[in-house]
Design a protein around this nucleic acid. Structure first.
Lengths: 189, 189
DNA sequence: AGATGAAGGTGAATACCATTAACCTTGAAG
DNA sequence: CTTCAAGGTTAATGGTATTCACCTTCATCT
């Protein structure tokens, strides 16, 4: 009974995302995914060219959600440095809430899974502006890059369980980000 | 002619590492690996329990090599902050020199591939001591964690080709690391 | 009303993959 | 000179993504 359609691109995305967060991307097979939707694996190819295209779509969506989660940091009623601190906290929270799909984002184990650049630039620009306010236009891009590296690196180390030597990880994180930000302000003198 | 042995654990490691750096870990199959050594895939199981064990051994070796590459930074004839700057430069150079195997290190896409913690602690301690000198014993671990996150995050973003908006990436990197370090010194006041 | 054709699903086939078990050969050690 | 472990092979198992021919359903056009 092929009509009406039992699945669609969005529902595949949703089920796949849940499966990945539950079992890891390494355990996601099109067989299992299709079975979970009451359909055979071949049917999925009506909606995605191949598995890589599906994973790429998930990555695109993850980026969207990440920046959506960061949006409260852009509220301009607080000082710039506090906006960036809030951004850091929200970033960390998102990564911990979506460990598997966040971890997928910038891993190049499978080629061409990375999200398209254009959209990313649009999403990141407000944060570059914050850094322009903080330490000048000339430094904004460099400061933004380091900020993203620090946030991403911390998230990846946390998710890979590489920070196992005790202490208050949340506190250490915030202190480190604050050191980075004040370092830029101090440099500007 | 099974005697003398045609392969051994070390040579497998070496060939596998080269294959990964050449084609990516996603394109490494035991079939191809064995063929490259003039042997059948089943033979590899005499030397490694399974593929995951082989990849884990590669990761262990990568860690060793990474810290070996960092060693010049520990030379105590220069100021602490310059030692850490040199460490950052060497770290980046290592990641760019070994993009695939470095990228494998802390990606948890396959479970239990991560290197053992004990050895890592031993390797990292001298750097924690540098931070103790820089910003006090109490802050050393937090400062070290942020430093590693910044270095690792920058490396991963570089390898994933996520910093495509021009500028002098090497310069931006060094400026960011310096900002982080001076931020800790400033905080200490 | 009836033909057309696209959409959505299936079954079967292909070509890989990791892993395992049974087996064979070599050579060293008792 | 027998024993036996080491180091290799072949073949099989069960998993993977992907493709293709096919069938059915339904909407649309004449």
């Amino acid at each position: 009974m092929p009509y009406p359609s039992q699945i669609d691109a969005d529902s595949i995305l949703k089920v796949a995302r849940n499966a990945i967060e539950a079992d890891g991307v390494g355990n996601l097979s099109l067989n299992k995914l299709a079975a979970a939707m009451g359909v055979k694996a071949a049917s999925l190819y009506r909606y995605y060219d191949n598995k890589a295209a599906l994973l790429k779509a998930i990555n695109q969506q993850t980026i969207q959600r990440l920046f959506a989660a960061l949006e409260p940091a852009l509220d301009s009623s607080s000082a710039t440095i506090e906006q960036l601190m809030m951004g850091a906290k929200l970033y960390r929270a998102f990564a911990l809430d979506n460990p598997q799909t966040y971890g997928m984002l910038f891993t190049n184990t499978i080629d061409d899974l990375r999200p398209d650049p254009e959209e990313n630039v649009r999403l990141i620009l407000p944060y570059q502006q914050l850094f322009a306010d903080l330490c000048g236009d000339v430094n904004a891009l460099a400061a933004l890059r380091g900020y993203l590296a620090l946030l991403h690196g911390y998230a990846m180390l946390l998710l890979a369980d590489q920070l196992r030597r005790g202490g208050d990880l949340q506190q250490d994180y915030e202190t480190a980000v604050r050191a980075y930000l004040t370092g830029w302000v101090a440099n500007e003198k």
